[in-house]
Computed example of a mutant assay.
Amino acid sequence: MLVLSRRIGESVVVGDNIAITILEVRGDIVRVGIDAPRDVKVHRAELLAELEQTNKQAASPTDDIVASLRESLARRKNS
C-alpha cells in the first residue's frame, strides 16, 4: 500500500485518467473528490461489504422459506 500525505487542493493520479483530490479536512473527516471515466466504478468499501452480505443472505434460503416451499409443493401434489 502506498501511503501519502496531501494537503487541501493536492491530488494523486492513478493510472492515466483517475485523479483523487483532497477537498476538505475537518477534524478527522476528509472529503475526497475522485475524477474518473464513467466506465470506472468507484464505490465506498463499506457499501460493497454490505452489498456482498445482503447478496449472500438473499442467496441462502432460510428454514422458514424452505418449509413454506415444501408445503406449497405438497399441496400441489395433493390437488
Rank of each mutant, 00 (worst) to 15 (best):
Q53W: 09
V42D: 03
H43T: 12
I34F: 07
I20N: 00
D35F: 01
I29D: 13
L4N: 04
V66E: 10
I34Q: 08
S5M: 05
T62H: 05
D16N: 12
R26F: 08
V42Y: 03
I29M: 10
I8M: 08
S79R: 08
N78E: 15
R70Y: 05
D39F: 10
L73R: 07
L4E: 13
S72L: 13
I18L: 04
I29Q: 12
E71M: 07
V40T: 15
E10F: 04
N55Q: 09
E50T: 12
S11Y: 01
A67M: 09
D28H: 06
I65K: 10
D39P: 00
V14E: 09
V13M: 07
L4H: 03
K56L: 15
A49M: 08
S5C: 05
V40K: 07
L2F: 13
S60Q: 11
L4W: 02
A58W: 05
L23S: 12
V13K: 13
R31F: 08
S72Q: 11
D16W: 02
S5E: 14
N55D: 08
S79C: 03
A36E: 01
S72W: 03
D16Q: 09
N55R: 07
S79M: 10
M1H: 10
V14K: 04
D16T: 06
H43D: 15
E46D: 13
S5H: 10
K41W: 03
A58C: 04
V13H: 04
A58H: 06
L4S: 06
S79V: 11
R70S: 07
R38N: 15
T21Q: 02
K77V: 15
A45M: 11
A36Y: 00
L23I: 12
V66T: 14
A67L: 12
P61M: 11
A74Y: 03
P61C: 02
L51F: 05
D63A: 10
L2M: 13
A74C: 02
D64I: 03
S68V: 02
D64S: 08
R76Y: 10
D39C: 03
V13G: 02
L73K: 06
D35Q: 10
G33Q: 13
A74T: 11
K41V: 15
E52S: 10
D16K: 07
R70A: 14
E52M: 06
V3K: 09
L73E: 07
R75C: 00
R76M: 12
I34T: 13
K77H: 11
P37H: 07
R31M: 08
V30H: 04
R26W: 05
E50V: 06
R6D: 00
V12S: 03
T54I: 09
D63R: 04
V30R: 14
E24N: 15
I29G: 02
G33A: 14
V25W: 03
V14P: 00
I22G: 01
A67G: 01
L69K: 14
V3Y: 04
L23D: 15
E24H: 13
L23P: 00
E10Y: 05
V3H: 07
A58M: 12
E50Y: 10
I34S: 07
I34L: 12
A59I: 02
V25E: 13
E52C: 03
N55P: 00
S72V: 06
T21C: 02
I18R: 01
R26V: 14
R38E: 15
R7N: 11
E52P: 01
R26Q: 14
E24W: 04
R44G: 03
Q53M: 13
A74S: 12
V42R: 02
R6C: 01
I65V: 14
